[in-house]
Design a protein around this nucleic acid. Structure first.
Lengths: 147, 147
DNA sequence: ATAGGGCCTCTAGTCACTAGAGGTTCAAGA
DNA sequence: TCTTGAACCTCTAGTGACTAGAGGCCCTAT
């Protein structure tokens, strides 16, 4: 008879936690598996592969929506694979934008720390920078760095 | 008589949206303002300063918890300002770690794209990379990049 | 006096899970 | 075969930091 995995087996083999696997099922990312007579989930090799795929896509930072999309694409081996390129390229651009935003932020933060004297809060340049809105002239716009 | 601002005035002057200001009040970040006879909020100059302070701290990426902490510190000008240094330094380290994680991710993503041929999904190297768990040997650990 | 834009509260939704309560099932050892 | 306890089940609610909407009241300019 075929291999059969409990939800805990899947969790151990993929590093994805048990409640997360159930969550993935609830949002339709994983198919509903067979159940034992006692109502416990039993998975086959396919489910393990799917879950690993999801884990990898998530590790690349794809949001669930894109993971859905990627799974759909992967399910049709005969189709052309341009969409994948587009998804990966989109993700790459996002990551690059985030890096440059964070790099700017890093520079501002280390600017705050550089040459900062330990005095009282009243004399503190850092607090001043937060308080003084003249430092934040029109046009100087800091976006929230991580949405 | 003293200056008096409606919640909409504050929103316009700080760039923070009206519902967000109410939210900040609800979590205790902003003090509860006076009200008109008709129950509408009326703020003074202090509230405007506080909200600007919050906006700046958030722009530096501090989580709300740290913003709370920073506000507490700023409220006591006579105390020493070491804690501020610690908070900023901590934030800097976080940002640097995030940058290096994202940089690794960027390299992996552009590695996927580099030399990728447009064929069918079945032959697609990218899909393969997501599917094939041998590419993901024990020890090779990708964390989720942005929590 | 009235029009309409701004304000009020309250609930629910977002994303991707995580935690807990309260109860059932499975599998290994005696 | 029985027992034990780890693993499983469902369901609800909570996280962070807001955002959106419903349904209704207020303020001010004309």
């Amino acid at each position: 008879m075929a291999e059969s995995f409990s939800i805990g087996d899947l969790a151990r083999r993929t590093g994805i936690k048990v409640p997360t696997i159930r969550y993935y099922e609830s949002i339709g990312l994983m198919p509903e598996p067979d159940r034992t007579a006692g109502n416990q989930r039993r998975y086959g090799r396919d489910a393990l592969d799917t879950l690993n795929f999801i884990a990898h896509a998530r590790a690349f930072g794809f949001p669930m929506k894109s993971v859905h999309h990627l799974l759909d694409i992967a399910a049709h081996p005969e189709r052309p694979c341009e969409d994948i390129d587009a998804l990966v390229a989109e993700r790459l651009i996002e990551v690059e934008m985030r890096i440059s935003g964070l790099t700017r932020l890093r520079d501002e933060l280390s600017g705050l720390l550089a040459g900062h004297e330990h005095g009282t809060v009243g004399e503190c340049r850092i607090i001043e920078a937060f308080s003084d809105h003249s430092l934040c002239a029109p046009g100087h716009k800091h976006d929230l760095p991580m949405e």
